[in-house]
Nucleic acid binder design. Structure first.
Lengths: 198, 198
DNA sequence: CGGTCGTTTCAAAAACGAGTGAAATTGGTC
DNA sequence: GACCAATTTCACTCGTTTTTGAAACGACCG
């Protein structure tokens, strides 16, 4: 076995390191449950990130005591979401998994995913919550009734929500950039905002 | 009963309005489940927001078909988080609940709550995930060993996470301001960021 | 090809969290 | 201070989501 491709046993017998990693893995798993991410998914990602090297599925399974099924499904999802890379090594049938090490890229990846999966559809659904003046009013236009006050107020509230969500969406868009995230620029922008004078 | 204090029956017999409200309530409840907020909590808040008037607990219970217990617990939490105001009316033992109508204030309220409940403790916990050079190294200082490479790398990764979370925390701090949120300013800031040149 | 190793799928179990409703409590009233 | 209405609490139920583990699948190797 080549020296530069050490196994888990060879590299990770350092109790202080292991225990520090475990603290982060537990913490991250706990955070996950508060943010709608399955605990094992967060834990697996935390392990790959903090160890900063490639793992085979079996190493992950053993280290975190998760089932084969969970590891497989979770890794697939993490790869789909571009949080983890899968690599095939010649001469080894086992795939190796590793996590993006740039925390800013991680951040934008998550932001992008949530925007696409939640903000964009939300914006669309909100529009449907308006009381369309045409739809209902058309049938009773003959009465000469103006649109009821209550309808106008309702629509104003929806409109304000749309405006807020749309604005946040635009901020995300701006941060992500039109053709993929650019970490340095994003970081600079956020830093500027954080440090702006009170 | 005074005319200016109409009951649910008196004000809300407009099917178009009710159904539009219901659409929003369902949508918001659904969003809640994706963001770690109990469905009923999101629904109750949506109802109070979109109706834009005060409700008694019983009105909420009937309108949303939730149990007394859920209504009580949820309203308490919503009031704790300053998302909903409770008001006592003289001559009526029932409390009335209403939601903040300014969506920007809502946004800052949520931001503030999540920051306090999640970001701040997270930052604290992350620090504990470092391999403190003093703690472990002290016992084996005699060996003359420098701090292992693996420990330095580990701490660097943690440090980068702390930096990211800390920066987001600082942005939130900046947006919220030192003595409570100021909606107009916040809105202007976010608008500027959204519209900045690409 | 047949065997081996690794991955994926899926039905069932376990764990978790939300919701219920009756009982206890509170607070106001006569 | 006893009663009544409203609110809160909490042990339990119910539904969902997560996790498991075994079986099916697929790919690579000799």
């Amino acid at each position: 076995m080549p020296v530069h491709s050490p196994t888990s046993d060879a590299t990770e017998i350092d109790p202080a390191l292991i225990s520090a990693q475990d603290r982060l893995i537990s913490l991250w798993g706990e955070m996950g449950t508060h943010w709608g991410v399955p605990r094992s998914m967060a834990e697996i990602h935390a392990l790959l990130f903090i160890a900063g090297r490639e793992f085979t599925a079996d190493e992950i399974i053993e280290r975190l005591s998760v089932s084969r099924g969970t590891a497989s499904m979770t890794l697939r999802t993490l790869v789909e979401w571009s949080m983890v890379n899968r690599r095939h090594h010649r001469g080894d049938r086992r795939d190796r998994y590793s996590a993006e090490q740039d925390v800013w890229k991680l951040f934008t990846t998550v932001l992008r995913a949530r925007k696409r999966r939640e903000f964009d559809p939300l914006l669309e659904s909100l529009r449907v919550c308006r009381i369309d003046a045409d739809a209902g009013a058309a049938s009773e236009r003959g009465t000469g009734d103006a649109r009821p006050e209550s309808h106008r107020e309702h629509d104003q509230r929806i409109e304000r929500m749309i405006e807020l969500v749309g604005l946040l969406d635009a901020v995300a868009e701006r941060l992500l950039g039109p053709q993929g995230p650019r970490s340095e620029e994003l970081e600079a922008l956020v830093r500027a905002l954080a440090e702006a004078e009170q």
